[in-house]
Nucleic acid binder design. Structure first.
Length: 240
DNA sequence: CGCCAGGTGGGAT
DNA sequence: ATCCCACATGGC
């Protein structure tokens, strides 16, 4: 079976099983007041129009930094703290001592490094006018920023700027490996090329696909896989 | 208790 | 180029 057909089949199965995931979550701490802010707030299934406003865009950028090698629940706590303290804004982050930012984002882990990363990306956001409509952000310019690697860059391009860059993360690698689509480990861009060369470059498709992979990885394709209920079981080589 | 979570940069080899 | 490690919290 051709790779493109296979990738599309996997997508269709995941979408049928799990439904649209509503990424990237956009938290509204006013609206979610009274609800448990630490659970799944902010998802907007079927709406690929978000983020729309600059403050929503910036929130996704901050989330992309904070979630580096970190559980999303911890990121929500950090975003909640930033919001409560009126720090979820690039100009304010630049005017605020890194110590203060670090303390607010403590639950997300690596808080000293991430405070520095937030300062750097806030600076770029303002200087390069990312918030302006029709601003075209280059991948290479994102990668120049200390603290922005390939996955974070692609997350921002895809989920903030709605550009068709497929996000490759540890879950994606694991899935491709277990499905037998790749044998030996590849470089980031090689994984990405598998998707870019075999799917139509549609940001809504890439958005949903990556979110569905994460969804599968959380419930079934874990480090210790639970294959009995996996929707891809029939298409995945057995493991001993 | 140990392991893991929507990675990245820096230094040694 | 590739490997190894520091960075750090909270949930299970």
């Amino acid at each position: 079976m051709a790779l493109s057909s296979r990738l599309i089949m996997i997508y269709d199965i995941l979408l049928a099983r799990f439904g649209p995931q509503g990424w990237w979550p956009i938290l509204d701490f006013e609206k979610h007041k009274g609800l448990d802010p630490l659970t799944d707030c902010g998802y907007h299934p079927g709406n690929y129009d978000l983020p729309k406003k600059p403050d929503q865009m910036f929130q996704v950028i901050v989330g992309a930094i904070l979630t580096q090698n970190t559980n999303w629940q911890n990121v929500v706590k950090a975003l909640f703290n930033l919001s409560q303290q009126k720090l979820l804004d690039p100009e304010i982050i630049l005017k605020t001592e890194a110590k203060v930012i670090a303390e607010a984002i403590r639950p997300s882990g690596y808080y000293n490094e991430k405070a520095k990363k937030l300062r750097i990306i806030s600076q770029a956001y303002l200087e390069q006018d990312w918030y302006k409509k029709n601003h075209v952000l280059k991948r290479e310019d994102l990668l120049k920023l200390w603290g922005v690697g390939e996955e974070t860059a692609d997350s921002i391009l895809l989920y903030v700027f709605k550009r068709p860059f497929f996000v490759i993360d540890a879950y994606t690698r694991r899935l491709l490996m277990r499905m037998g689509i790749v044998g030996t480990p590849l470089k980031y861009r090689e994984y990405q090329d598998l998707f870019h060369s075999n799917l139509r470059p549609n940001f809504e498709l890439f958005n949903e696909y990556h979110a569905l992979i994460v969804r599968l990885a959380k419930s079934n394709c874990r480090n210790k896989p639970i294959c009995s209920t996996c929707p891809l079981k029939r298409y995945c080589p057995p493991r001993h």
